[in-house]
Amino acid sequence: MADDRKHPGGARFVWEYAKTDERLRALYERGKAAQWNATTDIDWAAGVGTPGHVGLLGPDLPLGRDASPVPPERRAAFQWEFHSWMTSQFLHGEQGALLATGRLVVMAPDLDTKFYAAAQVADEARHVEAYARYVELLGNGYPVNPSLKRMLDTVVTESRWDIVLLGMQIIVEGLALAAFRLEHTRSFDPVIAMLTRLVAKDEARHVAFGLLALREIYSELTSREKAEREEFVKEAALLMSRRFLLEEIWRRLDVDVRDGAEYALRDPKMIDFRRLMFTKIVTSLAKVGLLTPGVRAHLEQLQLLRTVPRR
């Protein structure tokens, strides 16, 4: 793999302008055709849910009923805070994706990858715009989760373009895609339902972009390069699973944070929830050849592995 240190500031000019990957170019064309407008394509007046909409909160995901630190009379409050926390983290993650894909335009070694990354920058700007507006409507935002912040800091400062792509398109976007789809199925207000439906379509293309861009080059990694990327995946999985200990929510609900985090770590329903969130990541890692025995063992240790997908 080419040494990115040979390119000042990580920037790569490409002086050959012919198509190099028909699949990436086709994905770029689909992305252009699928652009939507956050201002006009979402009915912002349709109504945003409130804590009083107890009957519309849907199932108690991800809260189990046995030994829960949240008493029955506060389950609606938990669901409201969980929804507010999730959508706030969507917003923060989308800003990370905006910065990371902007870097990919600069760092990518071929024109088709630059083209698609540029189109994705527009997607991510639109996502930040839309989620910022939604969180403002909720009136109940959360700061960025520390584990997510650390992950985003790592991705946007990484000097190797393929690890920027791996961290954002496979890990962060894969997790977001699963979360968006879950949020859409259990949405209790029409605004977030419309928003997540539109964003999920974009994210599916983004994950596909990561798979197309990485699958072939990762088949040519040296053993040292592959080991470095395996370690990156392990650290990313640890950080992304930690965010679902929900420490900020327990604090907001005046639940002892250590008790709440321990419950989130051990409760079977919470474990199933995290496994569901990581399903797309695990499948994508298998497709790019990074679901190695070491990575698989690490995911099993973190209780993130549901089934082992076929390559």
Rank of each mutant, 00 (worst) to 15 (best):
R150F: 05
Q169I: 01
E203D: 06
W161S: 00
L198E: 08
E203V: 11
V164N: 03
G139I: 03
A204S: 15
L165Q: 13
L148W: 00
V199D: 07
L137H: 12
D162S: 15
V199H: 12
Q169N: 14
E183W: 11
V207T: 12
M194K: 12
G174C: 01
S147K: 14
L175M: 08
P143D: 09
G174W: 02
A208L: 07
F188E: 02
T154E: 08
L152D: 03
D202R: 09
V164H: 02
W161C: 04
V155R: 02
I192Y: 09
R160G: 02
R181C: 04
G141I: 05
L195S: 10
L165K: 02
H206Y: 08
P190D: 11
L182R: 12
A208Q: 11
R160K: 02
V156A: 04
R197K: 14
D202L: 00
R150I: 00
K201S: 13
W161A: 09
L137M: 12
A179C: 06
R160H: 03
F180K: 06
L182W: 10
A208E: 12
F209S: 03
T196Q: 14
L166V: 02
K201T: 05
D189E: 09
T185F: 04
F188G: 15
L195G: 11
L138S: 06
L175H: 12
L148F: 08
R160S: 07
R186L: 12
E173L: 00
I192Q: 14
D162M: 01
